[in-house]
């Protein structure tokens, strides 16, 4: 079936007078992809690792879409929504992989909509409220995107050589996308830092808000260390990430904020399912419909 626009597709008469509400309505995103698990790999570790990578992308995607219609200019609404869509695409592939490797019958929708807060494995950087709204502003959102995309680009760059064929393929594709996410954030950092006194002040404050969550990105989790041929040890990307961030900051005549890292809780943080209170407020609207009306159609 071919449609002139997306609204025609949504309102298509599918024969049973019902339209999807829960789930994507799309086919399995990994349809036909070679998905053999390398022999020596623990499937439970691999599944958790896929969740970590997926949840980072899913949660930041949700945060970025909160800007849609509220960005400082129309072009930026479109830009942040496009970046969110790329991350959502990566998340779908990774959640589908996590579910099939886990082997418990959970698909991407079950993993996105029916897990509780403590089951999410994302780093805390992606979940905090950076605006719009009281938690931040556009500059804070750009600061987070700069740090996150620089780090994820470096991780995916290594992951493209993973022993897991699906992770390697998702990463190779993701590298192309993260490269322009990072450029976008870096170019806005320069504009805001080099703009008015006010825009510079906001950029400085935005960096100070997100910087306490920078260290956690490089702290390896036991699961990452248990999959040496498959996963990336995030401590190994620190030099590359530091070099890029220092280049951007120097060009913007900014310095690294002097702030302490946000404490872990008994040595545990986002990767262990220990989150800030922001995550629950994010998940509530994201999961509400799917939980209130399981399998809903209209």
């Amino acid at each position: 079936m071919s449609f002139d626009n997306a609204y025609d597709a949504i309102t298509e008469d599918s024969g049973d007078d019902r339209q999807w509400a829960f789930g994507t309505g799309f086919d399995d995103p990994l349809s036909g992809v070679d998905r053999a698990v390398p022999g020596e790999v623990s499937t439970s570790d691999l599944s958790v690792y896929c969740l970590m990578l997926a949840d980072d992308a899913l949660i930041l995607s949700q945060r970025l879409t909160e800007w849609c219609s509220r960005a400082p200019e129309l072009e930026e609404d479109v830009a942040l929504a496009n970046i969110a869509l790329d991350l959502l695409g990566q998340a779908r592939l990774l959640l589908a992989r996590a579910g099939e490797v886990e082997g418990a019958g959970r698909d991407e929708d079950a993993l996105a909509y029916l897990r509780d807060e403590h089951e999410f494995r994302n780093v805390r950087l992606v979940e905090i409220d950076c605006g719009p709204g009281p938690g931040g502003d556009f500059a804070t959102t750009i600061a987070r995107l700069l740090v996150f995309s620089t780090w994820r680009l470096a991780v995916l760059g290594q992951l493209a050589h993973s022993g897991d064929p699906v992770l390697a393929a998702v990463a190779a594709k993701g590298v192309k996308e993260l490269a322009y996410h990072r450029d976008h954030a870096a170019q806005w950092t320069l504009r805001l830092a080099g703009g008015t006194d006010f825009s510079r002040e906001r950029m400085v404050a935005g960096l100070a808000t997100v910087w306490p969550l920078h260290d956690e990105l490089f702290t390896p989790h036991p699961v990452e260390l248990a999959l040496p041929a498959v996963a990336v040890d995030p401590s190994t990307v620190r030099p590359e990430v530091d070099e890029v961030l220092d280049t951007v900051l120097a060009e913007a005549d900014l310095s690294r904020p002097r702030v302490s890292p946000l404490a872990m809780v008994g040595g545990r943080a986002g990767r262990d399912g220990v989150h800030t209170e922001a995550l629950g407020y994010l998940l509530a609207p994201m999961q509400h419909l799917a939980r209130a009306l399981p399998g809903a159609r209209w």
Partner: peptide
Amino acid sequence: PTYSGCPAIDQMRSD
């Protein structure tokens, strides 16, 4: 797919 999140991929399959 062209992009990871390309929403057209399912439409391509059905077309």
